[in-house]
């Protein structure tokens, strides 16, 4: 069980990588942490002709404070996201989500850009970024474009990224005052992909009325999704126990999980409902209202 033959290139600079990616005569794949791609290649579920290893692009590994939020480079490892004080303080949801990702050995290699491009609906970080209203910057030889996370995911393991584009940066807005977030999931074993989960970001006004709500669901369908029906119930209201339960129910009924050996769709929906309820309670409490 080894990968099929491929040509290996390890560009030293981003422009070099972009030129390689622009070559559409070869079926190329970017190799970042390799924690999803190499297992797929070992299983022969993927057999690219050329691997473009971007691990030498050290200038894509950074966590930078901005007045409005954080810029994180695509090659930033999950371990570094998890250890970052800036991430914990400015975007606590991402910190919390990264703590659920796999195990130390996988986090030492896996990257932010990789988990986004892989776009697994059961992966924590994409869902946290969706709830955070993140902005992804992709670059090609033609230039750079910003993609709202809302427009990024496109069905099973698919994104709107073009084949010649490289994710270079992710911007996360900082949590505003009177804002609170929470990430919750349930899995059978520590570090496993979740049976179900939810990322919640709530912002209140100074009277404690919910001004905006973003509820994103984990393992709730083919791609990371928000639950607008649930969010709609929250905005304009003070969150009490009853409203939280109603919003959690609305989120669960909008979810579209699949039945698998790890749980039936019905069971997963019940898990999602509970994870949303917990998230809304915690986020409200953390917002200090």
């Amino acid at each position: 069980m080894k990968p099929a033959s491929f040509e290996y290139v390890a560009p030293a600079t981003v422009p070099e990588a972009l030129h390689l990616l622009a070559d559409d005569t070869v079926d190329s794949k970017v190799l970042a942490g390799g924690q999803s791609l190499i297992p797929l290649m070992n299983l022969r579920l993927a057999a690219p002709e050329r691997l473009i290893d971007i691990n030498n692009l050290r200038d894509l590994a950074y966590i930078r404070d901005d007045i409005n939020g954080l810029h994180i480079g695509a090659m930033t490892r999950h371990t570094d996201v998890l250890a970052s004080t800036s991430v914990r303080q400015m975007t606590p949801l991402l910190h919390e989500a990264a703590g659920f990702v796999a195990h130390s050995q996988v986090r030492n290699r896996g990257t932010l850009g990789g988990t986004l491009a892989h776009a697994d609906a059961a992966a924590e970080i994409p869902v946290a970024l969706l709830a955070s209203n993140a902005v992804i910057t992709a670059r090609s030889i033609e230039g750079e474009r910003q993609i709202s996370v809302e427009d990024f995911f496109q069905g099973y393991f698919s994104t709107t990224l073009r084949a010649d584009e490289l994710i270079v940066d992710v911007f996360l807005p900082a949590m505003p005052p009177h804002g609170g977030s929470a990430f919750n999931e349930f899995s059978r074993r520590r570090g496993d992909y979740a049976i179900g989960g939810a990322a919640v970001v709530l912002v209140f006004d100074d009277q404690g009325i919910c001004e905006s709500a973003r509820v994103a669901l984990l393992a709730a369908g083919p791609q990371p999704v928000r639950a607008p029906a649930s969010e709609g119930l929250l905005v304009g209201h003070r969150l009490d126990g009853e409203l939280i339960l109603a919003a959690a129910k609305a989120a669960a009924s909008s979810a579209n999980p699949v039945t698998s050996i790890h749980g039936s769709a019905e069971y997963r929906r019940a898990v999602i409902e509970e994870m949303v309820a917990r998230g809304l309670r915690e986020a409200t409490q953390r917002a200090g209202v």
Partner: peptide, 9 residues
């Protein structure tokens, strides 16, 4: 740093 040597080339 600990890594899995089966997911690296």
């Amino acid at each position: 740093l600990p890594v899995r040597s089966c997911t690296m080339l």
